[in-house]
Amino acid sequence: MISDKEVESERNLKLKPIAGSYNSYSVNEKEKRDWSGNIYLGCVAAILAIAFFT
């Protein structure tokens, strides 16, 4: 739905006009990295290493 109200968004978007085009923009969205999967994998690897060497 299109309205005249401006809505605050939590997404960090950067619009950049595309050279040589008419009303075309490149949308770059920067996301925060989710480290929880990597931390979980690191803990599992540490537990397996401890179990292997003991």
Rank of each mutant, 00 (worst) to 15 (best):
S21K: 14
M1C: 11
N38D: 07
I47F: 11
I39Y: 04
S36T: 14
C43V: 15
E10R: 09
I47G: 13
M1I: 09
S24Q: 14
S36R: 14
I39V: 15
Y40H: 13
N23D: 14
I2S: 08
I50G: 04
G42Q: 05
Y22P: 05
Y22A: 12
E10N: 11
A49Y: 11
I50S: 06
G42H: 00
K14Y: 07
S9A: 08
L13M: 00
G42R: 00
N12G: 10
Y22S: 12
L15N: 06
Y40A: 15
L15A: 10
A45Q: 04
P17T: 00
L13R: 01
L15F: 14
F53N: 05
V44D: 01
S21A: 14
F52E: 01
F53E: 07
L13D: 05
S21N: 08
V27Y: 06
A45L: 08
V27G: 01
V27F: 07
S36G: 08
K14P: 05
S36V: 08
I39L: 15
L13A: 04
S36I: 14
G37A: 14
L41R: 12
E31P: 01
I18M: 06
K32C: 03
N28H: 04
N12I: 09
E6A: 00
S26Q: 15
E31I: 11
A46V: 06
G37I: 11
D34F: 14
E29Q: 14
T54H: 09
N23V: 10
E29N: 09
N38T: 06
K14W: 01
G37D: 10
A51L: 15
S21R: 15
A19Q: 14
I2M: 11
I47C: 08
V7F: 07
S24T: 09
D4E: 12
I50T: 07
E6K: 03
F53R: 06
G42V: 03
I39M: 02
D4L: 04
